[in-house]
Amino acid sequence: MPPPLLSRTLDPILGVFTGVLAYYLYETHPRTAMPDELRLKSLLRWKYTRWREERERKLLTTEDNIDWQAVAANAEKELEEQK
């Protein structure tokens, strides 16, 4: 294993910082001129909105299919058997 350049904890932090800075410069550089709808911020916002809508739809459509009367009757039956 090669020796660390600065320290064992500072090297990974420096690597993450360099990667984030490089991606930021890639997105904002005029030569690449990425459209706003393809930037990471707008893509993350779109993905979060889609996830939230699916979650709301799932929560609204999911109904309790549990027959509580049958559960209560079963519990009473088990209590009577234990006596």
Rank of each mutant, 00 (worst) to 15 (best):
P3G: 11
P3M: 13
L5T: 14
S7W: 08
R8W: 09
T9S: 14
T9A: 13
D11A: 04
D11M: 03
P12C: 05
I13K: 08
L14E: 11
L14G: 12
G15S: 06
G15C: 05
F17E: 06
T18W: 11
L21V: 03
L21A: 05
A22W: 01
A22R: 03
Y23E: 08
Y24W: 09
L25M: 15
L25K: 07
L25F: 08
Y26W: 02
Y26T: 00
E27S: 07
E27T: 01
E27V: 00
T28C: 10
A33M: 07
D36I: 07
D36F: 11
E37W: 12
E37I: 07
L38R: 02
L38M: 10
L38W: 08
K41E: 05
L43C: 01
L44H: 01
W46E: 09
K47I: 05
Y48L: 05
Y48G: 05
W51K: 03
R55A: 07
R55S: 09
E56D: 14
E56V: 00
E56S: 04
R57C: 03
K58G: 01
L59A: 13
L60S: 09
L60G: 06
L60Y: 02
E63W: 00
D67F: 05
W68S: 05
W68A: 09
Q69L: 14
Q69N: 14
A70T: 12
V71K: 12
A73T: 10
N74A: 15
E76D: 15
K77S: 15
L79H: 13
E81Y: 03
